[in-house]
Every structure is written in C-alpha cells, then in structure tokens.
C-alpha cells in the first residue's frame, strides 16, 4: 500500500530501539550547541555523573515530567533540542542540596532532552534522552 502518514509513523517508531544516543552521534541544533558552549565555556564534556529520567513516550507534549540527578554538581542546565528555543531551565545548587530535581516541561515534538552538569571539580558531564512526542488522534 502507498506510504501514508500512518504507515510512516508506524515504521518510524518501530525503528526507535536505541533511545540513548552517543554524544558524538546526535546532531544538535546550532542554538543548542551555542547554549552548551556558553555553559561549559568550551571545555570538554564527558558522559557519566549525571542521570536524566524522561518518559519514552510523552502522553502530551504540554506536560512532560523529567527528573535529573548529578550528585555533587554545582549546577545543571536542561535543554530541549527540538523546541523553538532550547533553554528549559538552569539550576544552581548550594551545599545542602543533593543536586537533583524534578519538573514538568513542554516539548514541541519528538526530540532530545539534554542535561548538562558542572561538577564540583569544574569538569562537565552530559546526558541526552530521546522523548517521543505524539500529536493528535482524537484526544484533540
């Protein structure tokens, strides 16, 4: 049968087995890269030390619960690579904090949510998760 949008969606989502993309594999927008650079000052960013929990499929892009944790970090920045502007929030932690947080965010479509942390020793860590955001059906 001809490739309708329905079929394309079905085929597309069937291929989304790998959800955690390696850092050098995901192509982030220029604005996202600029935001990352601004946060890190151009320093190297490694994996590990920061975790990000997101739903695999967002029930509704208007309200997507996320949770991040970067034990010992001084600050964390959350970016949504596919939003009109990538900035979601920046969190600065005091000594008493455990450098974790949960919130609910808006995602304009399927995209990567990126969490960056500046650790206590001044190094930087990053993690990205893909969140599938579907639009419509009859829920309207």
């Amino acid at each position: 049968m001809s490739l309708t949008r329905r079929n394309a969606l079905a085929l597309g989502s069937a291929s989304f087995v790998v959800t955690l993309l390696p850092l050098n594999a995901f192509a982030a927008s220029d604005e996202t890269m600029a935001a990352i650079k601004s946060f890190t000052g151009g320093s190297a960013v490694s994996e590990g030390g920061i975790s990000l929990t997101t739903p695999e499929i967002a029930e509704n892009g208007n309200t997507v619960p996320i949770q991040f944790s970067a034990s010992g970090a001084k600050r964390v920045m959350i970016l949504a690579d596919g939003n009109p502007t990538p900035g979601v929030g920046t969190f600065n932690f005091g000594e008493l904090s455990d450098a974790s947080g949960s919130t609910r965010i808006r995602l304009a479509g399927t995209q990567n949510v990126i969490a960056l942390a500046e650790m206590a020793d001044g190094s930087f860590a990053q993690v990205a998760k893909t969140v599938k955001v579907t639009i419509g059906g009859c829920g309207g």
Binding site: A10, S13, K132
Partner: peptide, 16 residues
C-alpha cells in the same frame, strides 16, 4: 490492520 501495524512498533517500546 492499523492496530497490527501500530502493535508491531509498540513491542519495541516500553508499555504505553
């Protein structure tokens, strides 16, 4: 038919 197509793709993802 639609359900079959979608069902195949949801096997790979965590329960909706």
């Amino acid at each position: 038919t639609l359900t079959c197509i979608i069902a195949l793709s949801t096997i790979t993802s965590v329960a909706i």
